[in-house]
Structures are given as C-alpha cells and as structure tokens.
Design a protein around this nucleic acid. Structure first.
Length: 194
DNA sequence: CGGGTTTGACCAGCGC
DNA sequence: GCGCTGGTCAAACCCG
C-alpha cells in the first residue's frame, strides 16, 4: 500500500482495489481519511476494519478473491472520542468523516442513498468544481462532497460527513440480490452502507 | 406540480 | 480589520 500525504489528507493507496459497481469502468481505488484538523497530523487515527452498521463495508472484501492481487485495502477510521477534542467540536461534528478517492469516469457513484445537490464551488488548487450533496431522507443530515482530483482528474474524491440514521433505500434490493445471487461472490462486492 | 439542479450571494473561520 | 477560502442558502430554473 502506498501512503502519501497532503496538508489535509493522508492517502492510503491500493491500486488493486476494484469497485464492483463500476465493472465497465477502469476502476481502482485509493482510500484516505482526513487528518487531525487541530494538529495537522494523523496521530489520532485508529486503523480498524469497518464493522459498525454506519460504516462502509470492509474493503477487504474487495480484494480477497475478486481482485486476486492480494493486498487488502484497509479503511482507516478517524477516532475523535479519545483525542481531547473539545465538547463543542464534537457536538459540531456530525460524527464520522470518511473519504476515499476512486478512479472513475463518472463523478458520482451510486452508493444506494438518495442525495440532493445543494452547492457547487471551485476550490483552491483544483481547477475542477466541488459538488456538495445532502442526504435527501427526512431527518438525515449526512453530507458528502464530490470533486475531481486536482492533480489527476481521472480520480474522484468523495467525502462523507456524518452518519445516516436510516437504512439505504436500496437495502432491501441488495438483500434480495444477496439471497438470489451467489452469496460468497456477492460478499466480494462492497456497498457504501452508512 | 413536486422534486432536483444551478448559481450567485451570503456567512463563518482563519491567517496576516 | 481585511481578504481569502470553504461551506451553505435560497431563488430561479429545469424536468418528468
């Protein structure tokens, strides 16, 4: 796994990652999580397999058999509770922030949730516009940002802020797929299920 | 007509 | 205080 850093993000690269939703696109994935906003380092990060219902399905399922290249991509989850973050910061924070970079021809991946676009902005050091989305489910305040990588427009950077308080509208659909499909093979696929 | 998108304006935080 | 930047709002517009 390649690791590189920018002033704002730590990148965890695994080019062997294949996005199951985008079989027709040349997909590999490079995951990262934002670094500590206060200190500008990533000491507060905890490496863990995502297992909570609010998290992305463990990406190790991507590479186990379907990828065939071996190295598993591990998600890094930002831990905020034991790092001395002020209470106000935590209340202000919606909880989880998860980001990943994906090589994709399309800008917005279908993660099963319904998003409403509420803003679009050009940002510094990026000629491409950044798009802002909110979860359109009532009472759900999860947001995501989608932008093309300024250094390599072939990559799309998606950042999720917050935790869904509901199931994916496509949850039942995917469950049906699991039941009717080869379960072991389906497990190689990943759903962005927060 | 309802829901989603576009886009300029506005606001807050931060550094100088 | 001022300017820059990122994030959000909301009115206008579009589309099925």
């Amino acid at each position: 796994m390649n690791i590189s850093q920018s002033p704002n993000f730590t990148y965890f690269s695994d080019e062997s990652f294949i996005n199951p939703f985008m079989d027709n696109n040349d997909f590999s994935n490079l995951m990262f999580f934002d670094v500590d906003e206060e200190g500008g380092n990533n000491n507060g990060f905890v490496e863990e397999e995502i297992s909570s219902p609010t998290s992305i399905v463990s990406s190790e399922t991507f590479t186990g058999e379907s990828g065939g290249s071996g190295s598993a991509t591990t998600l890094f989850k930002k831990e905020s509770t034991n790092r001395g973050i002020k209470e106000s910061d935590q209340t202000k924070d919606t909880g989880h922030r998860v980001a990943f970079r994906t090589r994709s021809k399309i800008d917005v991946m279908d993660d099963g949730f319904k998003w409403r676009k509420y803003g679009k902005k050009s940002v510094k050091n990026n000629i491409n516009k950044r798009n802002y989305y909110k979860c359109s489910s009532e009472g759900c305040s999860v947001k995501k940002r989608v932008e093309r990588d300024g250094e390599d427009a072939a990559y799309v950077i998606t950042t999720y802020d917050g935790v869904h308080n509901h199931e994916s509208p496509s949850h039942v659909y995917y469950n049906d797929m699991v039941l009717s499909y080869d379960h072991d093979n389906w497990n190689q696929h990943s759903l962005l299920h927060c």
